[in-house]
Write a protein that binds this DNA or RNA. Structure first.
Lengths: 275, 275
DNA sequence: CAGTGGTCTAGACCACGCT
DNA sequence: GCGTGGTCTAGACCACTGT
């Protein structure tokens, strides 16, 4: 009975005021329904979602609300939007599988007969003709973080090598790899023209008389930085895998890759642990 | 002086029309400046950003524009917002390091003297008293995907075990792990009351007379699903690491964890590759 | 050109956290 | 109660993609 008087309230007019969101906010209702359609394959990967105008009509909400719902789906990695075209259910991309076998020299040796390979062209059958490598070499003093990974004094001079790797025209990976400068200065390894080096880092070190005995990789994930979003063409809602690699000879660290950045929608890392 | 003629333009009135965005959109200008402050530590982790009202005044834009800028920073994982309080520079969380040593039985044995440990309590010194485990066991037929990971026929009955793992009250991990039902039915392993099992899966299998020889982990990253965001209390802009694990005895797969889900802002996976 | 999304404004009211 | 962010509307104009 306390509510009997409710209907008598002078509610300005009728639906003049945006109804209060006592329950789930409207943009969530829209997002939930679209998410359902995507996850149940009612809208299969790659297919267009209804246009903003259509959603305004279907749900009876304003454009701002529709756009908020779509922004949520993008942040969840379920949809991508292209200006002038529309919003799509996120297509499933072919996955690049990176196994730890890629570091074994025997595998590298085998590929000598065919096209050049490195630790990141294996596991996918990418051919020499299908990938490009942009690189830039510099001599820099070790930062505190890198020095710690090398177990060297900060300021020790390093050869820093930055790579951007494309396969089939699509950027697949950025990385920064460092050697202690005194290890490589004056050798073919220090010459950018020799990249990509068949057999990769492990073979490079082998030509310097160094046999790699262990590699340690630390894997994290995060959202891409601004530069990475552009360079790797990462759509919103897609994280990156960030791998830090230490290459060991016995207890000595002879190479460090600070941040191997891989778009997570196209990459799987595979590790075997033998017990 | 270059602006003298400006005031003579018949610009309808004065600032009546939102200036066209010939260059960078305004919300990006706001976001770029705030990002700069965060990354240069002008606003250190955990500290409040200016309020929306303050940003409206500082940049002379509308509230919608300010909110769009903040949404961008959240999506980049740089800021988190709390209703009624404000927006903070994202605090740096203590990282849980998960090394592959955690699977070695010798390590598990060592911990027998102290509090119970599993493969996911090691590497962090978490004590029995500091973590809780929620679990739910079910008997289910293998889906096509799981059957393939086991190399078994789809429909084979499995014991499916779901876990939610908390440390210090904070949810740290969700996972679903499966054993072939005929392997464990009627044994202590099939009893949820025995979890957490000291020494973890590897020790469980050992009591069944099975010695694990190899573990394969496949690591991917993605944005969390709706349920994961709630269960693991993941703020927006933080991805999850999704690990698929196969536990081998020789060539036989005796355990599969379909999706070990780890919040990426609190986790680092470490793998050693011996060559 | 029409249709799509991108940017921006002004104003309204609701809900949370504090003091 | 005040200040914070959360939700929503209505309308405007810009910019891209197609025919």
């Amino acid at each position: 009975m306390p509510n009997c008087s409710m209907s008598q309230l002078p509610e300005s007019s009728v639906a003049d005021v945006p109804a209060p969101h006592a329950e789930r906010p409207r943009y969530r209702v829209v997002a939930d329904e679209l998410r359902r359609r995507i996850l149940t394959d009612a809208i299969p990967p790659g297919q267009l979602l209804p246009s903003e105008t259509a959603l305004i009509d279907e749900f009876g909400v304003s454009r701002g609300t529709v756009r908020e719902a779509l922004a949520l789906l993008r942040a969840e990695g379920l949809a991508i939007t292209e200006h002038g075209r529309g919003t799509y259910a996120r297509p499933v991309l072919p996955v690049r599988r990176l196994g730890s076998e890629r570091y074994r020299r025997e595998v590298a040796q085998l590929s000598r007969d065919g096209p050049p390979e490195t630790s990141f062209t294996r596991d996918q059958g990418i051919r020499w003709s299908a990938y490009q490598l942009e690189r830039e070499f510099r001599e820099v003093p070790a930062s505190a973080a890198v020095a710690e990974l090398f177990d060297l004094a900060p300021g020790t001079m390093l050869l820093e090598r930055q790579f951007l790797f494309r396969a089939h025209g699509v950027p697949q990976q950025m990385s920064t790899s460092c050697y202690p400068l005194d290890l490589v200065v004056g050798t073919p390894v220090a010459d950018p023209a020799n990249e990509p080096w068949p057999g990769g880092n492990i073979d490079q070190l082998h030509t310097l008389g160094i046999t790699v005995t262990r590699i340690r990789e630390r894997v994290r994930a995060r959202m891409p930085l601004a530069g990475e979003t552009e360079a790797l063409r990462i759509p919103s809602g897609v994280p990156v895998l960030a791998v830090t690699r230490q290459t060991h000879t016995g207890d000595r660290v002879v190479e460090v890759a600070v941040d191997i950045v891989l778009p997570a929608d196209r990459t799987e890392l595979v590790y075997d642990i033998d017990l």
